[in-house]
Nucleic acid binder design. Structure first.
Lengths: 352, 352
DNA sequence: CTGAAAGCGCTTACAG
DNA sequence: CTGAAAGCGCTTACAG
């Protein structure tokens, strides 16, 4: 038994955690006064306040958040509910969210679950039991919600990268403008025959990015180079498109491609390269996502669109906090701007 | 102002959440009795118990976890502290952890932060304030801890995929045996000239995987094919190695390669393919990580080693719970077995 | 078998 | 300016 350990300290003489009672005693005041001093509330002589705060510091007192939650009816926790178990979207969102909230004393419960209603329900229930102050609902596509009813949920909710009804409050990237950014970049580089290869039509993001492609083309008086090519969100699809292009005479190929995501872009580039073509010399390629592990590893590294998911998480957290505090918040969807990240898959922009 | 919304319901007549007081009243008993009935504790007539439980169900009562935490001195929450903001390792771990704990009523706080001591301290502090019952410390390499002192932390801690002292309790993959698995697979396929290309020497995982490579070779009376090649954990490094091999006459090339991770493996394969060689015909390649987005997208898809990180998270959670409950737990490191995932980068195994 | 009381650690009116 | 009291929602001895 000597190699095993009873977890709770056996030394019962150690009273465990320092409570406000301990600091009150040490400072020679009542716990009510101690509480007010520590929260910078109420009125008392500066000396008393200082004495109490010093005592607290000396004892290493940290208020018990559970007790505080019980009386204040605020737990200073929020829940992040997501069906994005892979974390492609949720992880940057969670990072921005946590970073923004940690300073305000709020922590976030991560509830990532497979896309089935039962799991969703169990996790939602857990969040209610834990009395979270609010909920972030995050998904992996902007046209689907989680498989849960949020029936008159008594707590505020912010939707991020998932379906957002008119009466909801939510955040999404401005896919359309982001796509236009990509295409403008290609045009600025002198490309004129700009194709678009992207994901399945069923995704709202696909339609929006396709519109952005058309917008930018139109703004420059350019015709689309062929119809958009829709396939799966995979390297494999991009690869097959690249192969097909490589088999064509140069005059029938695009000189620029805007891809619906980085994986497709990589597939296109790999196929073109293997067929002896050069990216960006023969064809410039832009991706979408700025998924660094792809974008940086592609040869050449991908110029791509970043959705600023981390910033989205930050803003969603801040808005949720406002709602928790009862501040008025506009309903509806916020679309956050995307940004272009330039690497080497498009060539060098002409001198400005 | 009609497009904005005051978050807390304005209807004050709605008393908010159902409490145990409500169910006690509905069932015509005291709240003490209600509590016992709902927790299947104490003794009372089955009828009374049933009546109370029915009342609770009808009212939709769910116990307030905060109040329960305050009295029971257990919050039924744990913290997951990690510096793996990218989530490559932490995400599967978190998934396994949450899934295992949700059934036991415990939720997990996600604290992912950049690798600086101040952020680590702030997050650790937040977890202490929130009175978490225990902590999972997860990293992105097995030979580094988080930049925090865990000075006589009063709560139990389990380390996952990060440095684990002799007196600590932790989980890691059995890198050495996993590597041997990969090499045995190559040998079983008839490969005899088996090279090893992997990450930087400074990583303990590199040394362990290299030992596994040597172990398996030795067990079959084979000599290593050259010294291990150490570089960065990147496609780029694998690519440069592949290029160098492609330039060699076949007799000087390996016929099988065990790579330290999937990115390196992909780089090797891409370079060989671009140079006109065929994987797996000319060279069989095994990766490490089973990072699906790489392993599945590589042409051909990667045979690779999976570290079972999700299972690791599950077991870590269960052990942590045992510690929280005061059960005796063996100190020390647990090494969990890896598993081989067969795809197409090695060729078809000979009929058994 | 059931209930009144005390208490978890804190905060917030309300007296003095 | 400071403290005694009540209470957040629950559980746990302890009486009856």
């Amino acid at each position: 038994m000597s190699s095993s350990v009873e977890t709770p300290e056996e030394d019962v003489s150690v009273p465990g955690r320092i409570t406000i009672r301990d600091v009150a005693k040490a400072a020679g005041v009542s716990i009510a006064t101690a509480s007010k001093a520590l929260n910078d509330r109420g009125r008392m002589t500066p000396e008393t306040r200082a004495r109490i705060q010093t005592a607290a510091r000396d004892l290493g007192f940290t208020p018990n958040a559970v007790a505080r939650a019980l009386v204040s009816q605020r737990s200073f926790t929020i829940g992040l509910l997501t069906n994005d178990t892979y974390g492609r979207f949720t992880l940057p969102v969670a990072a921005g969210l946590s970073a923004a909230l940690i300073d305000r004393g709020v922590s976030v419960f991560l509830c990532a679950f497979q896309d089935d209603p039962e799991a969703a329900r169990v996790n939602l229930r857990a969040m209610q039991d834990k009395c979270v102050d609010g909920l972030i609902i995050a998904g992996k596509r902007i046209d689907r919600g989680l498989p849960i009813e949020l029936p008159r949920l008594s707590m505020p909710v912010v939707h991020v990268y998932s379906l957002c009804g008119d009466d909801d409050i939510g955040f999404m990237p401005d896919d359309r403008a982001g796509a236009a950014l990509a295409v403008q970049h290609l045009i600025g580089l002198g490309r004129r025959r700009i194709a678009h290869v992207t994901g399945p039509l069923a995704f709202a993001a696909v339609a929006q990015r396709t519109e952005g492609w058309a917008d930018a083309l139109k703004a420059h008086g350019l015709a689309p180079f062929g119809a958009p090519l829709n396939g799966t969100w995979s390297e494999g699809f991009g690869y097959s498109v690249g192969q097909a292009w490589a088999a064509l005479p140069p005059s029938e190929r695009p000189d620029g491609v805007f891809c619906g995501n980085d994986q497709i872009a990589r597939g296109v580039i790999d196929a073109l390269t293997l067929a002896g073509l050069n990216v960006p010399r023969d064809i410039s390629v832009v991706g979408f996502d700025n998924w660094s592990v792809f974008a940086e590893a592609t040869r050449p590294p991908l110029t791509t669109i970043d959705m600023n998911l981390q910033e989205m998480g930050r803003q969603a957290g801040l808005v949720l906090l406002d709602m928790v505090e009862g501040l008025p918040v506009e309903r509806g969807l916020r679309r956050l701007p995307c940004r272009l990240v330039t690497r080497q898959s498009c060539g060098v922009p002409p001198p400005a």
